[in-house]
């Protein structure tokens, strides 16, 4: 698979103390790579380096075939960024914003009407952004990032502030972009989104990658589904937890099942957040 982003031994520091160090990963066409980590972990710095805003880094960062620190401004023709917070002119309409930001690129633009329609905002095209809800601004921001048809997309909390229906629409659009071969870097605190969307994720803590794999592999390698059940013993409720893979040898559970004495039973699978906590000792959600 063609690699759109190749990062090798990236290191950078704002002061004498290293801020990000020993960062290596690759993202190919049609892949979604998740950068997960708490605030201040170094995600934004890594993104700034990837989009060529920070040039005095060590190591190698090849983005779209160009060493990031040596890029020209044409480099941005192929990059789309969906910021976590709306970055729009509030006194202009949705259409005027898209027309203006689109005019800054020389790429053939996508049809803004189609994109607005897809996010359910075509009817709001001629309304001022200042009157939009947070969710509408987020959707317009996303459309703005797609407008010049970039091959590399940086999405920062793309579903933040959206209701479940619109979050679903947005996630479907992201998956569609992946199908088209776009290379996508997703930064999120939402572990469900990361699990669903990402082909690979990296846990970033204190400027280092603590773990990097597919969400499925991370979940399977670090944790296992568990079964928790409760029953009465001497009039007191007892709870027990056993691994799903070991239920066959759990004599107490078998006995309770045979005698219909179970009060409750439920299974739970580890989430990416559980794995994140296990690996890094911190929580994201």
């Amino acid at each position: 698979m063609d690699k759109m982003i190749t990062v090798n031994n990236l290191a950078f520091s704002y002061t004498k103390r290293p801020f990000v160090e020993d960062i290596s990963f690759e993202v190919g066409k049609g892949e979604i790579f998740g950068l997960l980590g708490p605030s201040g972990a170094g995600k934004s710095t890594i993104q700034k380096i990837l989009v060529g805003l920070i040039r005095n880094y060590d190591g190698s960062v090849i983005v779209d075939g160009v060493e990031s620190k040596k890029h020209t401004n044409a480099f941005y023709q192929n990059i789309g960024v969906d910021f976590e917070f709306p970055s729009l002119y509030e006194k202009l309409t949705a259409k005027q914003n898209l027309e203006f930001f689109g005019s800054l690129y020389s790429n053939p633009l996508r049809d803004w009407k189609e994109l607005l329609e897809e996010v359910g905002m075509l009817e709001a095209a001629d309304k001022k952004v200042s009157g939009f809800s947070k969710g509408m601004k987020s959707r317009l921001n996303f459309v703005k990032a797609l407008l010049h048809n970039p091959q590399i997309l940086f999405l920062d909390e793309p579903t933040s502030g959206l209701d479940p229906t619109n979050a679903r629409i947005m996630k479907n659009m992201i998956l569609k972009e992946r199908e088209k071969g776009k290379c996508i870097i997703l930064t999120t605190h939402n572990m469900e989104d990361a699990t669903e969307l990402c082909d690979e994720v990296a846990f970033i803590v204190d400027g280092h990658i603590k773990a990097k794999d597919t969400p499925h592999n991370l979940i399977m390698s670090r944790g296992a589904a568990r079964v928790t059940y409760s029953y009465l013993e001497n009039g007191k409720e007892q709870n027990r937890t056993t691994l799903l893979s070991e239920t066959g040898s759990d004599e107490i559970l078998h006995s309770l099942l045979r005698t219909n004495q179970l009060r409750s039973i439920h299974s739970s699978e580890p989430t990416l957040n559980d794995i994140f906590m296990e690996v890094t000792g911190r929580s994201l959600v």
């Binding site: 960024v81 917070f85 709306p86 690129y105």
Partner: peptide
């Protein structure tokens, strides 16, 4: 304040 500058900073605009 409207963060429009953020979008300009990562566009081909020099």
């Amino acid at each position: 304040s409207e963060r429009a500058l953020n979008s300009i900073a990562i566009s081909p605009v020099t």
